[in-house]
Design a protein around this nucleic acid. Structure first.
Length: 423
RNA sequence: GUGGGCGUAGCUCAGUUGGUUAGAGCGCCAGGUUGUGGUCCUGGAGGUCGCGGGUUCGACCCCCGUCGCUCACCCCA
């Protein structure tokens, strides 16, 4: 046992019933993103470290302590992506596509942290990015998409927190005011922040310690420092969402971990999940990011949503049924030791019917047991009798009381199965 | 990075104050039913008790270390 390998710390294999759930939530997202006019984008899982450092902030927790950074054999320094936005913006800058550029993705993300419930070293995100417009209608569309998505997968107990960081100027003015205010009260902060309060001052707003909450509550507030344009933008987003019947709570404390955010930021939180890891999706505007990554100034907005967290939230709400059916329609039982099963399977599969079978010439009883467990609707039986008579026996595996089973000519099997499946 | 809990069959777990061949349920395989699943009955396979060291006449049990899992802090999806 000690000789066998296992998945690295903080990573997980997804298989079996869980995999069906993954397929369901991913397919639902892809479908919805298509409806909203997004195309899929695939970018490398690793990038030059600068892509992340410049975007999410060199002093941010994620960049300083949590990135998987490595040097390749050519001496280049790369990082495994800790989040999904920066790579998309990098690709956008590189290819300069027509605007607006709307892309969705499904990607793993890597952060070197201590794993716990709802937090892993490798997790997966579904997300979208829109580049090329600062129209509040886009903010509305992006938030509405995520809202529709969570509803589509059956999530009920979630809320939307929204805030505006203002553009660069509002933001830096506010940070200055806040720092000045805090400078006189450092000793009243929580132990941890007394040491690091001037490193990333905004993050202090996110501190849950009573000391910090009390001080920041009494201090200068972010909404009071927005310029008229930023406040107008925020108001437009808010009313746009209301028009769609999407309600959200303005949360001045909502300060997200990446430096690239400007103006709108938002977070979807699940009330079915315990406090610490309750964010199931989050994002915001990043109007300066394209520039920071060497492109033309281009506003953008997007979100990332954690698949593992979403699944935890669904489970916490008691919803464990996959959104997609992955049980086969037909199971072929063959005891003739010929290629009969192989031919039937191929014929049905070619006609679009999910068909499975047993292998290794097992007894009919054994094959029937496997058929039962497969969840297939029908079993097609071929034994020496059927082979000699040119027939196939079709048996309904779902009939609970009476056993329903008839034999039909071999050449009529496809038509019979299709009609029984209502196709 | 810091702290708590836990590592016994594929899974969920028992295992008496350390005492001889380590158990159950589920799952798996075979048979009962010489061609037919879901219920039932019988039998079987499967464990170097995470790994390494120590204490002891003797360790799954006690001690130390290590690896892993898990929960929390921090941070975030």
């Amino acid at each position: 046992m000690s000789e066998a390998f296992q998945a690295p710390v903080g990573t997980h294999d997804v298989l079996g019933a869980e995999a069906a759930q993954w397929e369901g939530v991913i397919a639902t997202f892809a479908q919805l993103a298509y409806r909203y006019g997004f195309s899929m984008i695939v970018t490398p899982v690793f990038e030059e470290v600068g892509v992340f450092n410049r975007g999410i902030g060199e002093k941010s927790e994620v960049a300083t302590k949590e990135m998987y950074v490595f040097e390749d054999r050519g001496g280049r320094t790369y990082a495994l992506r800790p989040e999904g936005t920066a790579p998309v913006v990098r690709a956008f800058v590189q290819h300069n596509p027509t605007l607006p550029f709307k892309a969705w993705y499904f990607t793993p993300a890597f952060r070197y942290e201590r794993p716990q419930k709802g937090r892993y070293r490798e997790h997966h995100q579904l997300g979208v990015e829109v580049l090329g417009s600062e129209d509040p209608a886009i903010d509305v569309e992006v938030i509405s998409l995520l809202n529709d998505y969570f509803k589509a997968v059956g999530l009920k107990q979630f809320r939307i927190l929204i805030n505006s960081m203002g553009h660069e100027e509002c933001r830096s003015k506010y940070v200055e005011t806040l720092r000045a205010y805090l400078a006189d009260r450092v000793d009243q902060l929580c132990e941890e922040h007394q040491k690091v309060w001037d490193q990333n001052t905004l993050r202090l707003l996110d501190c849950k310690k009573v000391e910090c909450v009390a001080i920041t509550d009494a201090g200068p507030q972010l909404p009071d420092h927005l310029c008229t344009e930023c406040e107008a933008h925020f108001t437009a987003v808010k009313s746009g969402l209301e028009a769609l019947g999407v309600s959200c709570e303005r949360t001045p404390r909502l300060v997200r971990g990446f430096d690239y955010y400007t103006r709108t930021t938002f977070e979807f939180v699940s009330d079915a999940l315990d406090g610490a890891q309750n964010a199931i999706g989050g994002g915001g505007r990043y109007d300066k990011l394209a520039e920071q990554l060497g492109g033309n100034p281009t506003p953008g907005i997007g979100f990332g949503s954690g698949v593992e967290r979403l699944l935890l939230a669904l489970e916490a709400e008691g919803q464990t049924e996959p959104l997609i059916n992955r049980t086969p329609a037909v199971f072929v039982v063959d005891t003739t030791e010929t290629d009969a099963a192989s031919l039937i399977c191929h014929e049905l599969r070619s006609a679009g019917i999910a068909t499975v079978r047993a292998y290794d010439n097992r007894s009919m009883k054994a094959q029937m047991k496997v058929a039962d467990k497969s969840g297939a609707r029908f079993a097609l039986l071929v034994g020496p009798q059927e082979l000699a008579a040119g027939q196939i026996t079709i048996r309904d595996l779902r009939s609970e009381e009476k056993i329903e089973q008839i034999s039909i000519p071999r050449e009529k099997v496809l038509a019979e199965v299709l009609s029984r499946l209502g196709k």
